[in-house]
Design a protein around this nucleic acid. Structure first.
Lengths: 166, 166
DNA sequence: TATTGTTATACTCTATAACTATA
DNA sequence: TATAGTTATAGAGTATAACAATA
């Protein structure tokens, strides 16, 4: 399941950054999914809900913010509509586009889901002494904006282009 | 692609730990894959190679160390054998089990791949000032052994049990 | 009966392709 | 021509099931 790329803890003393990041992100993601599932949301639904609430946004705009494909956005919005948390409305300025409008119920759920997200994060960070915590978060932000800002161009793309003639 | 669970950077000031961990682990994983691909290895192949070198280990033991399914281990070992980096040998004590023996070429490649892994980690950590670095790594270790040590039991399992009668 | 390793396959996820309607 | 959204589906990854050999 986890890559376990260099889970060589027993034998190596050098810090295995891959293991540390993979493990923590995976476990946090699992906990977040479980916590949000209790109110019927996925992480993606929460993400769309929150950003659709901020201002009028189209599916494409929300897809970019959440780093999803537009086809993934379709199923996410489908789920939100089915749950009565959001609706598709035609844009008044572009008849191709749909504005994602959050319902009143959707706004209530979003407020609750944001609490849940904050709490899950808080519980995770509780493992750190207060003074370490600030340094840790600053460091994470440095990594995110530093050398780990952008994925390397795929030498061999994740997904092969489809063969012509198929 | 990335979950983008709470990529709400523009509007929220609270640290979004999910975003930070997802993003950094994903980018690091991508970079690692690209770097190892240059010598024909995947992260799993590297992981198996390194741990098989340490002592005589069976596929099951290596699967546990690398947190892989035993069926995933089969294809990983297949790849190592095909590349001439490792061989399956019958265990002398259990005729069901296979010891994964690393070839001389495999040992050379493992030494090189370990250099690559260390270098990729080093490049990532270079974004941090020296004093921050130690605190950061200590904090990551605290998270990994703290509340983020174990994934929560899946409320709804990742994969549904197969229907009976199919 | 339980376990190691194998094969075959089913399931999930997500991106690609192709399409409609607009711009 | 290009873009927003949709549908259908292909590809990759990985786990489940069933099996053979052995414990």
């Amino acid at each position: 399941m986890l890559a376990g790329m260099t889970a060589m803890a027993p034998t190596r003393t050098e810090p295995d950054l891959s293991f540390l990041l993979d493990r923590t992100s995976h476990v946090l993601r699992t906990r977040m999914a479980a916590a949000l599932a209790e109110i019927g949301l996925t992480a993606r639904m929460h993400c769309v809900l929150v950003h659709a609430l901020e201002e009028e946004r189209t599916q494409i705009q929300l897809a970019e913010i959440g780093d999803m494909d537009k086809t993934t956005m379709v199923v996410t919005v489908d789920a939100l509509e089915e749950a009565g948390l959001a609706e598709r409305r035609p844009s008044s300025t572009d008849r191709r586009a749909r504005i994602i409008a959050v319902t009143e119920e959707g706004a209530r759920v979003a407020a609750r889901s944001q609490q849940i997200v904050d709490q899950v994060h808080e519980e995770a960070l509780a493992a750190l002494p207060a003074n370490e915590r600030a340094v840790f978060l600053r460091a994470m932000n440095r990594l995110v904006t530093g050398h780990l800002a952008e994925p390397v161009e795929h030498a061999q793309p994740v997904r092969r282009a489809r063969q012509r003639g198929n």
